[in-house]
Simulated scan of single mutants.
Amino acid sequence: MEKRAPYATRHEDTRGRFHQEADSATRTPFQRDRDRIIHSTAFRRLKQKTQVFVAHEGDHFRTRLTHSLEVAQISRTIARILGLDEDLAETLALSHDLGHPPFGHAGEDQLDACMAPYQGFDHNAQSLRIVTRLERRYPQFPGLNLTWESLEGLVKHNGPLTGPDTPVTSLPAAFRDFPQLETLELDQFAGPEAQVAALSDDIAYNNHDIDDGIAAGLFTVADLMELPLVGDVFRGVRVEYPEIDDRMVSYEAVRRLIGLWINDLVEETRRRIARVKPGSAAEVRALGEPLIAFSDAMEAPQRALRVFLYARMYKHYRVNRMRSKAKRVLAYLFEVFLNEPETLPPPWSGMAMPLETPQRARIVCDYVAGMTDSFALEEHRRLFDTRALT
């Protein structure tokens, strides 16, 4: 076993679960949390949920599932280097996208618009709703009954939720519906493993979107050459291997870029550790600033890459067409199910039909958000194609 740092989260000191259970004889609490995520229905559905491209556009583009696996791999690597709990970091990486609806951010934007009269939709809050309420796998309790540390990291992986200008009452409804929400120390940063998972997400999607964008023909290797850091790495690969094609250049350059991002994060985090000398995970949460971070020198290359990907990939006309179609599909589904809850399948119809509109909207939102891309398209066909009678 790797030596743990004093600021690592210790599974022996877990604050436990909100529903009492006997400990596992073979797994730590965080290993058990990870396994519950992997076996959940919501996790399996990620295999056909959009990352950037709709799942049916090609077998080789990343989906939410493959993205989550890549984030988990990066998280474990960084956690091992820093002496953190690898299993908790992996758990948080695997669970961070569970609440995403079909069709990626286009789907989230549309569901939020549909739910605007009913307190909105937020995919992070939906992740909490899934693991505490919607998953039904155990007879003793709703949800997955994850440890306090996993729930805290899931909720706060992007930073504190409350502060002087953000009271609990301002949070999305799916957060506020969790009775134990305020026990998760919402005004503090998450533990170090959650911070690692959050930045591993940035490393994964920034660099792998380069690979998917080139594979999709949205831009070329030559288009990347003027970007700071990214262009240097691509030029270096081209000089070192002049005979390989653009796809192989992309594979090698992205591999090197991921290593550069990881090394920068580790070096900057070690500088911060040396400065603040945290003695426990609780001290990390109370610092008032992140412990896990990239250096200031990495900010300009990251910003330039994001601007490039936004213009050349996320706002490409092909992606915009997909976004437009996806929004219409979800808007039509939501409208029909809200106004005609008898068209929902059981048990959803039984839950929705007796409710007033605001409460029914949340049930409809849960149903639609849980869909895969392909299932949403098939539901749309069944409801709106007059030739489809089943």
Rank of each mutant, 00 (worst) to 15 (best):
A5T: 11
T9G: 05
H11A: 14
R15N: 06
G16F: 00
R17C: 08
R17Y: 04
A22S: 04
T28I: 02
R34I: 00
R36V: 02
R36Y: 05
I38W: 01
S40L: 11
T41N: 10
F43H: 10
V52I: 14
D59P: 13
H60D: 14
F61M: 08
R64T: 12
S68C: 14
E70L: 12
A72S: 04
R76P: 08
I78Q: 05
A79M: 02
I81G: 04
A89G: 09
A89L: 04
L92F: 02
L92T: 07
L94C: 07
H96Q: 11
H96W: 01
H96N: 13
D97V: 10
D97W: 00
G104V: 04
G104R: 01
G107S: 01
A113V: 06
A113P: 03
Q119C: 12
Q119V: 02
Q119T: 06
Q119W: 15
H123D: 15
Q126I: 00
S127T: 14
S127C: 08
I130T: 09
R137I: 04
Q140I: 03
Q140T: 09
F141Q: 11
N145C: 08
L146R: 02
T147G: 04
E149L: 06
L154A: 01
L154C: 05
K156Q: 05
H157L: 13
N158M: 05
P160C: 08
T162G: 14
T169I: 07
A174W: 04
R176E: 00
F189Y: 15
G191A: 05
P192E: 06
V196P: 09
L199C: 01
I203P: 01
Y205N: 13
N206W: 08
N206T: 14
N206A: 09
D209R: 10
A216T: 04
V221W: 01
V221T: 14
V221A: 14
M225N: 11
M225S: 15
E226H: 15
L227V: 03
V230C: 11
F234G: 15
G236A: 04
P242F: 07
E243V: 13
R247V: 09
R247C: 03
M248N: 12
S250F: 06
Y251E: 14
L260M: 07
W261C: 15
L265D: 11
V266H: 02
E267K: 08
T269Q: 04
A274V: 05
R275P: 05
R275M: 09
K277C: 12
G279W: 04
A281K: 07
R285F: 02
R285Q: 02
L287D: 03
P290N: 15
I292S: 15
A297M: 03
E299M: 11
R303L: 11
R303N: 14
R306V: 03
R306A: 08
A311H: 14
R312T: 11
H316E: 14
Y317G: 02
M322C: 13
R323G: 07
K325S: 13
Y332W: 13
F337V: 14
F337M: 15
P341E: 01
T343R: 15
L344G: 02
W348N: 07
G350A: 13
A352V: 00
A352L: 06
P354F: 00
P354G: 06
P358F: 00
A361D: 03
I363G: 12
C365R: 09
Y367G: 06
V368H: 05
A369C: 06
T372V: 05
F375C: 00
A376R: 01
L377C: 06
R381G: 07
R382A: 01
D385F: 01
